[in-house]
Design a protein around this nucleic acid. Sequence first.
DNA 1: ATACACGCCTGCTGGC
DNA 2: TGCCAGCAGGCGTGTA
Length: 304
Amino acid sequence: MPELPEVEVVRAGLAPAVTDATILGVEVFEPRSLRRHDSLAGAFEELTTGRVMATPARRGKFLWIPLQGTDEAIVAHLGMSGQILVREPGAIEKGLLRIRLHIETPRSESGDRRELWIDFVDQRIFGSMAVDTLVPTVDGAPGGRGTEEPLVPAQVSHIARDPLDPAFDDAAFARALGRKNTGIKRALLDQTLISGIGNIYADEALWAAKLHYAQPANSLSRARIRTLLNEVRLVLAKALAEGGTSFDAQYVNVNGASGYFSHSLNVYGQQGKPCPRCGTPIVREQFMNRSSHFCPHCQRLRAA
DNA sequence: ATACACGCCTGCTGGC
DNA sequence: TGCCAGCAGGCGTGTA
């Protein structure tokens, strides 16, 4: 499932196709894929058709494409199974096509323009697209990766910056953890504290930092928080460098090719296999109605 | 206010 | 063989 690295791969792959391209038309095959769209502001099709797009931006797992000459952007979240694919007209989608943007790229040096399809494919409809208003960032820093503008879609403004964002505030994150009387994994998955982390990379980062998922967030020392943040960044950066994860082949990048980080997972999905550090069999337990994978030897609950 | 349960979704898998 | 419960889990909303 797409987490920060996978969404960033999509954003970067989308950029050359959509930047300065014009939206010629929109086909919505599944209205539920517009769940995030507030139709009181107008129909998605009407707000997008004819607009010229700017470079896509991302914060955490949210992606947005500003619409030039307006204070609006197309917002996309991939949910569990969403993909955004850049296709040549006429391509046949194997997955469940929910929304298709017909776009025309800007005039090239040779003077021609190309028509492309931007296909939003999503099996489970946890993801969605919308048109939303851009609002100023609270801290005045750029809204996210891919933009210099201090703007963020209204529905993304409550999402914290992600740990790869230069404007992420380490000290504020540490203070927030100190106020959280909950397990550290729950805090890592709380997108209002730190964004971009999902179940896979939460388990991987906790293993790397030798922390138990239920360790109370407010029991961690400043030094441990620093270590954890460092491991989070290493895990995300490594996955990003490898092009994203595709342990179940749900995730594909904008051209339809699978990512390939799954071979280097240390604990996620590795239950029963030896811990790469100490050899103790990895355990899987239910936590927060999802699976948590950890090494019972390396990752023990510590006294507060 | 904070913490947490739940609903949303569909394709695949394993057990009977 | 066929059916169906269980599972995958991010995020918004509702509740205590």
